[in-house]
């Protein structure tokens, strides 16, 4: 078992990178790695409930984030700076995620065996 952090960096509105990162996250968790997920940069938009609108034409994969609980993925984080830059309040986030500042993120990175970005 390894500590593996997957960093989501992309908006859900213009690519499927976040979607494939989600598949990767679930695959890692399915074989019992200790998986953490960090939403940073434009990936914080993945946490808004707005992608559920019917006119949203990419697969609404953020709805599948509810699977985290079923896969025992407890370490879900969001970058405070990214939220601030985009004017998103912590209570707008659609899943349970802990807000981390720069120092916390550095500590999180230091705890990992592997880090994957997408």
């Amino acid at each position: 078992m390894r500590n593996i952090l997957v960093i989501q960096q992309h908006s859900p509105f213009n690519s499927s990178k976040g979607r494939e990162a989600l598949d990767l996250i679930l695959a890692m968790a399915a074989v019992e790695h200790n998986v953490s997920v960090l939403f940073s940069g434009d990936a914080v938009y993945q946490l808004l409930s707005s992608q559920d609108h019917v006119d949203f034409k990419l697969k609404a994969y953020p709805r599948s984030f509810k699977l985290f609980a079923l896969y025992d993925i407890e370490h879900v984080y969001v970058c405070q700076h990214a939220l601030q830059q985009r004017g998103i309040e912590a209570h707008d986030i659609s899943i349970r995620a802990k807000v981390l500042d720069k120092t916390d993120i550095a500590l999180l990175l230091a705890r990992q065996h592997q880090v994957i970005t997408s």
Binding site: A27, M28, V31, H113, Q114
Partner: peptide, 11 residues
């Protein structure tokens, strides 16, 4: 291969 194999190889 699959993501499952990639995940298992991490050990």
């Amino acid at each position: 291969a699959g993501l499952a194999e990639f995940a298992m190889r991490q050990v």
